[in-house]
Nucleic acid binder design. Structure first.
Lengths: 217, 217
DNA sequence: TGACTTAGCGACCGATTGGTCTCTAGGTTG
DNA sequence: CAACCTAGAGACCAATCGGTCGCTAAGTCA
């Protein structure tokens, strides 16, 4: 009868916890609920896909009612676009943190990049990108977000010493190519896993990048 | 009221046309209907995605009734798996025909491969591969088909002179990598098209493939 | 405190989903 | 021709879809 089964357990509601006592401001209440909805939407897309992420599914996972959801998002599309922006931001934040704290060169950055593209966060992104191909409404809303996201990924390459010397154009060519490759690999490996090939491929990509850099500098 | 609007116009029903006169055998009737359903399923997945390819959508496109559809396929999953097998077969047939009639080397084979991966046929395949990630029933049925399909693609490489000398392992590594790259590219370009980058990328892949071949032989 | 606003709930709506069932049309076989 | 079988049609089913609406709960502010 009641869709709200998950409760607040899975949510990161603590983010907007009251500063003191049991009383929360309206701002805090709103933030906490939106945050639970975001987490639920992201995990739903990752686990049951874009098509399976119905309003009911998100309500079930978040413990928020339909009425509560539609208070903060006008439509499913609005919810999903918010999740896409969140997911792009998290992906970049994690990668940036790694590049900042780690002085690593190309041979360390590539496995990091592959790991990022296999993470739940990027799977959600990719799921939305694929759905956008055949859903005009989603595509129109997602395209500008994608444009910024993809550019930001290429810009991150500046923090890798070997790539810093490349022109913007060459660096973007190289990184966008590796990005597409990792995304394609994420799909084929879900269907036909080939751990040996994957290991060899990482070496191959590193050789490819070094070959490319040598030719262009 | 009636879903059957398309009629027989869009179908390739002519394949199973009666040998003479207006009378058809049961075999011919069945073949013609299944063929119309396959074409409708493939075009539907290509245009409205896997999730949008409902039984109703396929019936509308094919002009076959629900009863007629379920006469030949026990479930939507059966229909979709049949379409996947058809799509893999067509992809390979087209590529094989090109490689047979054309003596072309690597520099011609790569654009052909990219074109194949952008074709409606491969988009249908990829749409199913992505859906299979979060749909266990689909994944179980699609995995063996995918295994054969992917292996066949790598085997096609033997017909490209430059790749013939490589070991099976190296050839598979190279071709599966390019395959994943082209599939990933097909998605990102639908959202953020970059014709200039795509042109540069094709050259880049060719140069790298030549570099790889030189190192391994 | 009392008036007002925002957050959140869940019954409800019409449309659509995958699938079933009964019935008719058409081809096959004695 | 009669009996039989497969092909195909479409009304119908329960479940689920995205979204609405009237209501109560909680926070704000005079």
């Amino acid at each position: 009868m009641n869709e709200n089964a998950a409760g607040a357990g899975a949510a990161t509601g603590a983010v907007a916890a009251p500063a003191s006592g049991g009383r929360r401001t309206q701002r805090e209440r709103k933030r906490a609920t939106v945050s639970r909805l975001m987490d639920a939407t992201i995990s739903a897309i990752a686990e049951v896909g874009y098509a399976g992420t119905s309003i009911g599914e998100v309500c079930r996972r978040s413990g928020v009612s339909r009425g509560g959801l539609f208070r903060h998002f006008d439509s499913r599309l609005d919810l999903v676009i918010a999740a896409a922006e969140e997911v792009a931001a998290r992906h970049l934040a994690t990668a940036r943190a790694w590049l900042g704290g780690h002085g690593g060169g190309l041979r360390e950055a590539l496995p990091m990049m592959r790991e990022r593209h296999r993470d739940e966060i990027n799977i959600v992104w990719f799921e939305l990108a694929v759905a956008a191909r055949s859903d005009a409404g989603l595509r129109d809303r997602l395209a500008p977000v994608a444009d910024r996201f993809y550019r930001a990924i290429s810009d991150l390459g500046r923090h890798v010493p070997e790539l810093a010397a490349l022109s913007d154009r060459d660096r973007h060519l190289l990184i966008s190519t590796v990005r597409d490759l990792f995304d394609g690999e994420t799909i084929s490996r879900a269907l036909v896993p080939e751990p040996g090939v994957e290991a060899d491929r990482l070496t191959l990509i590193a050789e490819f990048a070094e070959f490319f850099i040598a030719r262009r500098t």
